[in-house]
């Protein structure tokens, strides 16, 4: 489904080379929920942008559905760190933006937007502007917007990093619910072990600069998961040991 082979990325700044990603190889199967867990400020967004086609690797290759990624495409939906909603459009307008760009007629667009607004639990807010919404609600709109274009792949770049702890838990449960109802291939970036454990079929642990793949964990706990079950806590402790050694 998604396949990164020996992906490296080096930024050059005034002749100084800064290696951000180093020889990253990973595979994501169809409808698999993969969480990329990594510390600090290193390369995670760059990796997502490369998969999205917004940035280009300096070495290696990325293929999605067997095709080389050479630019952004509607089949790969992205949910960004900060919500990045268009402030001049209503919830409906934001969610319907993708279908509009795809050239769908107005009526179909509206129906589609309505479906995904309902799915993320925002019925009744169709006509609201983003400025009137809370952080959690904005991220729901961001998810609905990514879903609405019917992508086969969803790339989520630390979507809950800016939310307060309470809302964050709630949104993790929501993402799990939405994904279970309407499965897609997901790559979800985070630096939060709990979040990773709650959501992932598989966790890919990255090291710090330059970023490489350090470890992989298959998570077989039944869904929806319980944050305080003994199995959950045990896995959490095990993974956190690995995370600490990367610092």
């Amino acid at each position: 489904m998604i396949s990164c082979k020996h992906v490296s990325k080096t930024f050059e700044n005034n002749g100084q080379k800064n290696e951000v990603l180093k020889d990253i190889s990973l595979e994501v199967a169809e409808n698999e929920f993969v969480v990329i867990l990594g510390p600090g400020q290193c390369g995670k967004t760059t990796l997502v942008n490369i998969m999205a086609g917004l940035d280009h690797e300096t070495a290696g290759s990325v293929t999605v559905n067997g095709k080389q990624v050479d630019g952004p495409a509607p089949e790969r939906g992205v949910v960004y760190q900060k919500t990045a909603l268009f402030p001049w459009l209503t919830v409906e307008g934001n969610v319907g933006f993708g279908p509009k760009m795809a050239g769908l007629p107005k009526k179909e667009r509206k129906e589609k937007a309505k479906h995904y607004i309902d799915l993320v639990g925002l019925s009744g807010f169709e006509k609201s502007y983003p400025i009137k919404l809370s952080g959690g609600m904005r991220q729901r709109v961001g998810i609905a917007r990514a879903y609405c274009n019917n992508p086969s792949v969803l790339l989520m770049d630390e979507p809950f990093g800016h939310l307060d702890a309470q809302t964050r838990y709630l949104m993790q449960e929501e993402v799990e619910r939405i994904w279970s109802q309407d499965k897609r291939t997901v790559v979800f970036i985070t630096n939060n072990i709990e979040e990773a454990l709650y959501l992932a079929d598989r966790i890919i642990l990255l090291s710090n600069c330059p970023t490489t793949v350090r470890n992989e964990f298959k998570i077989d706990l039944p869904r929806p998961r319980d944050y305080i079950s003994p199995e959950f806590l045990k896995l959490r402790e095990e993974i956190s040991k690995h995370v600490e050694t990367t610092e």
Partner: peptide
């Protein structure tokens, strides 16, 4: 906002469409 431009591009908007639908309203 560059992220707004990314959003439009991932939805398949051309450069001119991005100007009309994102650049000008913003």
């Amino acid at each position: 906002n560059p992220v707004h431009i990314w959003v439009a591009r991932t939805f398949g908007a051309s450069n001119f469409e991005t100007l009309l639908k994102v650049g000008i309203p913003s």
